[in-house]
């Protein structure tokens, strides 16, 4: 058994060598450091760090708000992808290009722009204040920022699938007397489910780690609007390296756990769909 197939092209050793060396220096060695460092506190110490009220509150806030934002983006993403793929209207291409904006805008720029809009002195924040709603410097502000950065992930995951979706199946359902709602629920949505799940997962993963677009709008009050990445920064400023590493490792482990879980679910759905 050979570990690679024969090829007449040269440069396999060189290119793979560069790849593995660079990957090890930039990604693997630093991550191994992250995985080792917390344990100098001992198992009990790591547990104490992570179950500390402030850390627990920050982790809960980051993961729950990211999940809510990703769910809202499931609806927004379906709506925008549907409109972009199925309807022809002036400015469609421009709208399509603008979807990528949150990818392209540096996070600190997005952060101060959202804060300027949603702060009590900003146009939207002032409006919200009139109806008694605090947007910036509250968890609602964090939720808005996380929705902003997650939206393109869902739209871009859905678009190609929706594009390739066979119209004939929908038309067949229509001929057989299915209503609009029935066609959407029984024909369109099941076909989109795997892409929707992966888009929502990506949006969730990105939101959990997001820092720049959130810190400005969050207000950063301990126990209330402090996100997990900010807590890492604070622990580092106090030279609590092991504590910072513990929070960082917990974030990585929980995110990967969620990714694996959701990928498995997606695989099961795809398999059921094929039967």
């Amino acid at each position: 058994m050979r570990w690679r197939e024969r090829s007449i092209l040269p440069g396999f050793g060189l290119s793979l060598g560069i790849t593995l060396t660079y990957l090890s220096i930039i990604v693997l060695i630093p991550l191994i450091g992250l995985a080792i460092r917390p344990w100098e506190l001992g198992l009990a110490g790591v547990w104490r760090t992570l179950t500390d009220d402030r850390v627990g509150a920050a982790l809960k806030l980051s993961f729950s708000l990211s999940a809510y934002a990703a769910l809202l983006n499931a609806f927004f993403g379906l709506l925008i992808a549907w409109v972009l793929v199925r309807y022809e209207f002036p400015g469609r291409r421009l709208l399509d290009a603008i979807v990528d904006m949150p990818f392209a805008l540096p996070t600190a720029v997005a952060g101060i722009a959202l804060t300027a809009l949603y702060a009590p002195t900003g146009p939207i924040g002032a409006l919200a204040e009139k109806v008694g709603l605090k947007t910036a410097y509250s968890s609602l502000g964090i939720f808005i920022a996380l929705t902003f950065i997650g939206l393109p992930f869902v739209v871009r995951a859905l678009q190609p699938v929706l594009q390739d979706l066979d119209r004939e199946v929908e038309e067949a359902a229509q001929t057989l007397g299915a209503s609009d709602l029935q066609r959407i629920v029984h024909v369109v949505l099941p076909a989109l489910a795997p892409a929707l799940i992966s888009g929502v997962t990506l949006a969730f993963a990105r939101a959990v780690g997001e820092y720049g677009s959130v810190v400005f709008i969050a207000g950063n009050m301990p126990m209330k609007t402090e996100i997990a990445p900010l807590l890492i920064v604070i622990k580092l400023e106090q030279y609590d390296y092991a504590g910072a590493a513990a929070v960082g490792l917990a974030m990585v482990v929980i995110s990967f756990g969620a990714l694996i879980l959701i990928n498995t679910a997606q695989l099961l759905i795809a398999r059921r769909g094929r039967r």
């Binding site: 990957l23 990604v27 693997l28 060695i29 630093p30 991550l31 450091g33 992250l34 460092r37 996070t107 993963a205 990105r206 959990v208 780690g209 997001e210 820092y211 720049g212 997990a228 990445p229 900010l230 890492i232 920064v233 580092l236 030279y239 390296y241 910072a244 590493a245 960082g248 974030m251 990585v252 995110s255 990967f256 990714l259």
Partner: peptide, 25 residues
Amino acid sequence: LIDLPFSISPVVSGLVWVLLFGAQG
């Protein structure tokens, strides 16, 4: 592994270097 940095928080991407090369790294 190549995709890994996409799913890591930017703050963690900074943290790992402090853990290696910081004053107490």
